[in-house]
Structures are given as C-alpha cells and as structure tokens.
C-alpha cells in the first residue's frame, strides 16, 4: 500500500517535470517510479512514520520565511562597509533521535539566518553548527531549539 502511494506520487512528479500529463507519459512515469523504488529498496528504512500534515505545512511556511530572512541578513552582512561578523563553531545539543529528523533539522539550519550545519557527532548527541555572526552561543541554541526543533517534533510525533 505504501509502495503504491509512493510510486503514484513519483509518477505525478515525473509528469510535472516532463510537462505533460498524457496517459502514456503517466504510465512511463509509473514504470520508472516502480523501477526506482525497487532499486533503492534495500537502502530505505523500515517502519512507518506518522505525520501531522498541518504541522508539516507550518514547518514549511516557517522555513520559507526564515529562508527569505536569511538571504536578506547575509546580503546585509556582505554589503556593510566594515565587515562586522563574528564566526563561531557551536555544538548544539540534539533532542531529536531519529536520523531523518536530524537530517531535516540540519537542512533547515543550513538555510536559516546565520547558521550552517557542519557535522553530527558519532553518538548523535550534538550537531556542530557554524554561525556567521554569533555573540552568544546559548542564545543561538535556544533559538534553534524553540523554532525548528520544536516544529519538527510536532510534525513527526
């Protein structure tokens, strides 16, 4: 059932990218989707992931807003006549446990104001984050924990 849904979604994505919704094209997309899912079967995790759609949508909106803000703040930092930045490497203590959640958080962090995820410690307890302009590491960690980490936790209970 899950595989059927996944292949249907991939077929729709194929139709969008190739720009034609003709039945033959959809069928080709479906075949390709089944092929791709078959090839990657051994690398996908087992078990289902519960999702709250509304929280996920909120996460996406917050992400887009933060992305716009971050591009703006980087542009300001670049164009300021005196280079007034204070780069730092901060270890952010993770509360998320599952790998895909950590990956999602790392991606969100990379595209938000002044932060870039660099590495995850072996034991998955810390995420090393590089900050462009960091006056206070505690403050930075609290910011991440309260926006993205909390929202990811809400989206994937």
């Amino acid at each position: 059932m899950r595989r059927l849904a996944a292949s249907l979604i991939l077929a729709v994505v194929w139709a969008v990218v190739t720009g034609s919704a003709a039945p033959a094209n959809l069928l080709l997309g479906l075949l390709l989707a089944i092929l791709c899912l078959g090839v990657t079967r051994r690398h996908r995790g087992r078990g289902t992931i519960a999702v709250r759609p509304v929280a996920l949508l909120l996460l996406g909106l917050v992400f887009l807003r933060e992305l716009a803000l971050s591009a703006w703040s980087v542009a300001i930092a670049v164009l300021r006549p005196r280079l007034d930045i204070r780069p730092a490497m901060v270890a952010f203590p993770l509360r998320l446990k599952r790998d895909f959640e950590i990956a999602l958080l790392a991606n969100c962090i990379t595209l938000t104001p002044g932060t870039l995820s660099v590495d995850v410690s072996e034991d998955r307890r810390f995420l090393h984050v590089h900050a462009l302009d960091c006056r206070d590491p505690q403050d930075l960690c609290r910011g991440i924990a309260e926006t993205f980490e909390r929202r990811i936790m809400e989206a994937f209970p």
């Binding site: 716009a68 980087v74 660099v118 590089h130």
Partner: peptide
C-alpha cells in the same frame, strides 16, 4: 565556512 554562508543562502535565493 563564512563563504559557504554567502554561497548557500544568497546564491540559492
């Protein structure tokens, strides 16, 4: 790393 900030954010947007 600071260069990466510029490339990954402003460049993508």
């Amino acid at each position: 790393f600071t260069r990466m900030h510029a490339a990954s954010k402003a460049g993508t947007v």
